[in-house]
Amino acid sequence: MWPFPSELPQPIQETATAGLPLIALGRPELYIHAHIVIIRFARSFGPHYEGNEMRVHADLRLKDVPGQLVRALEPISANDGNIVGVVHHHEAVTAGRITVNVTFEVSSQKSLEHILDEWKKGEVDVARLSSMLETFDFEYLLVGELSPSDLREIGEGIESIGDLDSVEIRYSVSPSADEKAAMIFGKMKQKSGLGRVDDFLRHRAMQSGIILISGLGE
């Protein structure tokens, strides 16, 4: 269950420190920033995170002898990796080794682990490794009669779709406005999830007579 307030906090607590969590119940977290309530829900990355592309940047240090580059790149293709770019620093030779930056995509943490194992066996030095999982952004603005319980249901609905990486809902608690606006930002692990979020929100908007304004999706 999301820690939404049962009703809008009124009046706004002037003592609230901007940007700092007022309530932190594990996950998600509820913030109040000026007149905006922010509810943030995020999953952590990890080896369980299967099924979507991971982009990896690796700085390798190779012996400056023929055949070393092939030895370094082979494990990537052998583990279904997709090499995006290779930059050779011939001029920077340290202790008989040259630096090569490799950028590649793999479909799982497991594949990356196999590549790292093979590099270790092949005496390929990994000086630096960073990875980033590819996610697909969505953003919506909802306008209409939105109660905290509506927003809770919407948040839970998006969560139940699956493939969700993170979602954040911001809404105003200004007591003057009859009709509320709420901004939803999120990331999906799979592109196909974007369509399901869109279908869910369209259905919900039609059902509740609220205006749904979507981002351009770029």
């Binding site: 953003e139 306008v143 606006a181």
Partner: peptide, 15 residues
Amino acid sequence: GITLEAISMAAEEKK
């Protein structure tokens, strides 16, 4: 039905 609040919330996100 688009409200000033919606316009200003979008503006906060540079939209």
